[in-house]
Design a protein around this nucleic acid. Sequence first.
DNA 1: CATTTGTTTTGATAGCTGTCTAGACAGACA
DNA 2: TGTCTGTCTAGACAGCTATCAAAACAAATG
Lengths: 110, 110
Amino acid sequence: MDEALTESDAIGLAKGFKALGDPTRLRLLSLIAARADDEVCVCDLTDAFEVTGPTISHHLRVLREAGLIDCERRGTWVYYWIIPSALAPLSQLLDTSTLDTSMLSAANAS
Amino acid sequence: MDEALTESDAIGLAKGFKALGDPTRLRLLSLIAARADDEVCVCDLTDAFEVTGPTISHHLRVLREAGLIDCERRGTWVYYWIIPSALAPLSQLLDTSTLDTSMLSAANAS
DNA sequence: CATTTGTTTTGATAGCTGTCTAGACAGACA
DNA sequence: TGTCTGTCTAGACAGCTATCAAAACAAATG
């Protein structure tokens, strides 16, 4: 057997997974990712859910503080987009085709 | 833009990510995955952490109830192993190289 | 400047989570 | 059968989280 995730690496990666561990946030992320122009206005997101605006704003903040998305205000509206380089190490960590080695490379990358 | 995750798909996938959203569980998973023989005894896991045995047991249960690992008692010891097919859709969902289409295929697979 | 619309922040609350200690259970073995 | 060791469950508790209503903030526009 080889070494695996260090504690500090695990802490960093777990923050990302924790942010993804909510159905509303997962759908928010997929809605943002599905946009052809790679960014989406909050007003379009709010309409797709049954929860209130402040709740959507809260979830977007969690995703942003986890470093998975970013946003910018342009005039009246605020636009969000995905940060692919933040998602990549999370995806690689779970890649079962090269699971044990990806554990190490993801640890080094973070 | 295309469709994205449905609510029920998001609920299922979020369960997996939620289970991964803790540093101890992430390290447990990596320790199990790093074993050459693909399975590991609880006693080996407990020694690698500072938390108590019951806490490790709790985290293993969370991972098991999320369907990410499974276990079997053989004599005195209990052995755990990873379920790669449960990790794959989570990894694919975050694969930024094919992000929007993987959202759909993961939804169909779950 | 006042108003309207889009978005976020604040404050409150119910429910969940990670951790512990104490105790229970399972198997091995004398 | 009794005892020892490995593992899990039960119960308790502090801290965190998802949600909402109400209020605040930001930009556009009359």
